[in-house]
Design a protein around this nucleic acid. Sequence first.
DNA 1: TCGGCCATGAAACATTTGTTGCATATATCG
DNA 2: CGATATATGCAACAAATGTTTCATGGCCGA
Lengths: 290, 290
Amino acid sequence: MAEPAKSSPLSELCSALPSLPMRLQEVGRFVAANDYDATTRSMRDLAAEAGADPAAFTRLAKAIGYSGWDALRAALTEARRPSQTSPFSGRAKGRRHGPNSDVALISDKLEAEALGLPRISASSVADAAKALHDAKRIWIAGFRSCRSVAELLNYELRLFRAGEVQIVGGSGPDDLDIGAFRAGEAVVVIGFTPYTGASVRVAQAAYRAGATLISIADSVAAPMAEGADHVLLFEAASSPGFFPSLTGAIAIAQSLAAVTFSLGGAAAKKRLQDTEARLTATSIYVSEKG
Amino acid sequence: MAEPAKSSPLSELCSALPSLPMRLQEVGRFVAANDYDATTRSMRDLAAEAGADPAAFTRLAKAIGYSGWDALRAALTEARRPSQTSPFSGRAKGRRHGPNSDVALISDKLEAEALGLPRISASSVADAAKALHDAKRIWIAGFRSCRSVAELLNYELRLFRAGEVQIVGGSGPDDLDIGAFRAGEAVVVIGFTPYTGASVRVAQAAYRAGATLISIADSVAAPMAEGADHVLLFEAASSPGFFPSLTGAIAIAQSLAAVTFSLGGAAAKKRLQDTEARLTATSIYVSEKG
DNA sequence: TCGGCCATGAAACATTTGTTGCATATATCG
DNA sequence: CGATATATGCAACAAATGTTTCATGGCCGA
């Protein structure tokens, strides 16, 4: 019997499968089909669901070279551990300085960001939008590169909530705005690693003031996610070695604005139309054609 | 204190964090930062690694409304379970006006934007980046919602091209900057329908001054694409009835900055490092670990 | 047909798990 | 300052875990 590639515990299992006794094959197939449950639930639990004897799992693990079920589970767990780096990290590192290296870089980056977008939790965004809709006043805070996200959200919300939306530090020092947070208002903070001190200060102030805190961040471990009523996550580290990506944050901000507008109903629609009418009247926009 | 949304166990945890006793905050942060280990390894194991008492984990779970650590772990496990449904499987098209209509709206929007990203022309972006790299000075113009894109691009380019990058109208009236365009410089204009008069004026001025004009727009028919040396297209109308999407424009801006940085080579790298060092020295960012 | 061999399930085992009670340390308020 | 309440670590607890042993049942070769 040849020892196959040990790349993954699951592939070891598959290759050894045909040479196993019948019952062990069944159990092995069950593990392969439910490897997530295999790493999280208990052996006896799995046995009950698979309709097999608990001992079969121990025997299976030993049959494919592990000291016991715990060892196999540990291997499966490590194999499933989410990589800290981007999923495309080990990819296309071959080309260093070619004419197409930059093009490939962009393609990979875009592809990675496209993969990250559907992973945003739509229900969380919807909940947060409800909170924005109920807020009497909306503060938005974002520093450094996140300032662009903050300003986009500010702009879109102002289209139908003019006067109730404000950027923290937009007109004067941050401290002035921070002291103005009140209960019944909402504060949106955008940020990712490395976190700016200002953003966590805003978040803490919002919490202390009893305002609804909405954090748009790259991790639940972000300092400004502490005490947040809503945490909206996006993937910032989509391209290694370069600046973190804000595409996800922008997508969240836009969805937030869209749903908040939708919740506004006819009133919001009217205010948006008024705003648009005013803009065209001031001839901000160029005429459609010609 | 209102009971916040319970979309995710982790966000519940984040929301409750500041109101917990100190030691419970520590273990709570540990769980938030290592949620994968929390679902796989044992409580005592985690306690040893976190340097805390095992009982603290049980108490934490109860403090945020669970019957015990097992219940919290089960919730985290379910939250992390890989989605079994294929991305495009049974999307209920019958969304009319239900509680989930907003969620479906967001999902569709994100999906559509994800589809639009790979359609961006990577080679065009690479060419434009080359032009930016060669430019002695870079002007960036974006108005209304596009201002956020302009500022992001400005921010990222300044990280390694400080002093050579400037937003049009960033410090004073637009006309002052517009008159300053010179040959050998580059002007980036971002815009989509309906096009603002200002952005068109910037584009025309850049053309007349003989500067390299880079237009980021939603269509080749855009007024500011006329005379442009590089036209970078993105899809703005991803979801009908709402504000156009800026996700594509942001992705382009970021790619542009990334490639320009890449072209800058060692010199750009050094200037970026200097900037980062200066930022950390001013203690803009919060320390990595508590 | 008999006898060794292996696969299989059930029960007993030693560990480890999550939990809880208690005593001490610390903070809060009168 | 004293009294009360809370927070925290330690140790003992019952339950659950993975493993092992043993008895049973079927299979193949002699």
